[in-house]
Design a protein around this nucleic acid. Structure first.
Lengths: 345, 345
DNA sequence: TCGTAACAATGAAACGATTCAAAGAATCTG
DNA sequence: CAGATTCTTTGAATCGTTTCATTGTTACGA
């Protein structure tokens, strides 16, 4: 009832040495069947559960990996997290999850916590500039993999998604539909993701002689911000209207869609083809199912774990030769009704 | 570079005893300023970080609390998690988060993992029937608080939200608007939440003589399922139509809203007043901002931690007198445009 | 100057699992 | 059947921290 059973209690109960109990747990082959049975029975009778603290203390490191994301509520990260957990489980590690909520101090707290826990390594989608802390960690033998951020390959491993390529894909798709007067809707270009997606779109535009791209700044990255932009569009005269709109994320696109739907004057995709970014769950169940750019979140999570494993290997018994890789994934175009069909008139 | 510094290294470096270093860390008042400075400097120079495994081993328990939720992607749980983390941080504990994803085996794995970690206690939103495992845990001194599930108060503490009251609130609100022909849209009533919300709605109906409630079964709890129901409604003749619709969750309500919006024949709220449940982020930014029933998620998370603390206190040095409480929160009505304005004709 | 608090610092013991050299048991070989 | 070989089992040492009884130091009043 009170204190839980230790390996010593099990040993006494089964009338064997503690080392034998440990062997049953870790190297069953080294133990005879008879002894094994007795020990297992004792474990069962006493309700013994391994004390991981003692195990780690001896081992010098834990079997956990720290993962700090910017927002667990964001489906993008939720998916990355799940993939990372599964990949970690396969190699016998567990993931400790921390949600920084874009807050540098929460992020810092989690780094401290994970360091005290002696995590094997850290996956992080950093809030601010944490290079100093990460360098520190590396010196102390805790390798780090940056998630959703491209890193200097001489210093860190990282997994990221090519936002420029995503922007190109989206714009190219609109152009392939025959649209020529495009608009880009996105928040401040100080956000790297937004800037890269815009840049990719401009690259696509440059390939088509008579195409143009107008940039519409949105006040934020929300549905309401999108609706604000949509309301401006609705008021325009026909010749001022774009025939293809690319939004820096799906929420903006849904907002734009709502504006157009409320007015009943412009049709999607006939008058305006609309594409978003992220392929959130709501994209498929929008009034007009929304085309979007999907990021390979599962691959991100899985690969992050793999890169961490590589770093750990490279730190092995031999000398400390650093081994970093920056893996960049290419996002994928998902075509739905909002950009379906033939070209506009 | 290699092995990280231990308290012993710090002691040597500062030329004090290990106990003194420990005191600096845990009981700074017991140490003179001079010594403290020397020790702190040594800590800094060596980059010492406490090894939590050793600390736990000595303490016999960790400073972590396990939390297992059904789906971290669900905003309801995301919010509960964050509140629990904050509340735990205040009392100096950290939260280990596990996402069962409605999968009993994942759930079981997390229970095992947390047990090995010797968590102080467990907060769980269980998938299936885990009473047996939880009894086991309790016997081993790990108290449990059920989250979002009402528990037998003689056995467990729990925090939950009164879904019956929520259903009543929603229906009563529609009735107060003058609506009398109500419809309830919800998935299988085998889901307790759905059944309770329906029951609450029926209770409200019973209070108003000429009111009626029609139950429309939806194929699931998604936007698409809601749209399916909405499409059926749109096809009805005027006298068959409800004038108030209460959906068992916001996704269904958004689906219904989409159907009506696409047809342009029925107006919200004039022809049909619509209310959902959960008050998800999207509710406020729907084409017609959606009225909803908000669950006090922050209070849930915070209270769950408090109840766990109570259980831990009760297990203290004195005899093991169990101390359980079932706290039931009342949800809150959030009125937006989808149920705004005066009664229907 | 001595005795006595009050305060600081010490370091061995304990927590529970794993490791590993060594001892012990069983099996095989000639 | 002795000796060699393989298979099992043993238990002390170890990991890094906290605890606490003990010793050492300082300050102060008598």
């Amino acid at each position: 009832m009170s204190r839980s059973a230790s390996i010593k209690d099990v040993a006494n109960h089964a009338r064997v040495a503690v080392g034998t109990v440990s062997n049953v747990l870790n190297y069953p082959d080294r133990v005879s069947q008879r002894t094994k049975d007795r020990v297992l029975q004792a474990i069962d009778e006493l309700g013994f559960v391994r004390n991981d603290a003692a195990r780690q203390l001896r081992a010098g490191h834990s079997r956990t990996i720290g993962l700090i994301v910017l927002d667990v509520g964001n489906p993008f990260f939720t998916s990355v997290v799940r993939a990372a957990e599964d990949a970690a489980a396969l190699q016998g590690s567990a993931v400790l999850l921390g949600d920084s909520g874009h807050d540098a101090s929460r992020e810092s707290n989690y780094i401290d916590l994970f360091q005290e826990q002696r995590v094997q390594g850290l996956l992080i989608s950093p809030v601010g500039d944490v290079t100093e802390r990460l360098d520190q960690l590396r010196e102390r033998g805790v390798p780090t993999v940056l998630v959703d951020r491209l890193a200097d390959e001489t210093k860190y491993s990282s997994v990221s998604v090519d936002d420029d390529a995503g922007g190109y894909l989206a714009a190219r798709h609109l152009l392939d539909l025959g649209r020529r007067r495009l608009a880009f809707v996105g928040g401040p270009t100080s956000i790297r993701q937004v800037a890269d997606r815009l840049q990719g779109a401009q690259r696509a535009i440059a390939e088509v002689p008579d195409a143009s791209l107008e940039v519409l700044d949105s006040a934020g990255q929300t549905v309401l911000a999108g609706r604000g932009v949509g309301n401006q569009l609705v008021r325009r005269s026909a010749e001022e209207l774009p025939d293809g709109v690319f939004c820096a994320n799906d929420l903006l696109a849904l907002g734009v869609m709502q504006s157009l739907a409320m007015m009943h004057t412009l049709r999607i995709p006939e008058d305006i083809a609309l594409i978003g970014y992220d392929d959130i769950d709501f994209a498929v169940s929008a009034v007009v199912p929304l085309s979007s750019i999907r990021q390979p979140t599962e691959a991100l999570g899985r690969t992050a774990i793999e890169l961490l494993a590589e770093e750990l290997d490279a730190m092995g018994p031999t000398s400390v030769r650093p081994h970093h890789r920056a893996v960049i994934f290419t996002p994928e175009l998902v075509v739905r009704q909002s950009t379906a069909g033939a070209s506009a008139g």
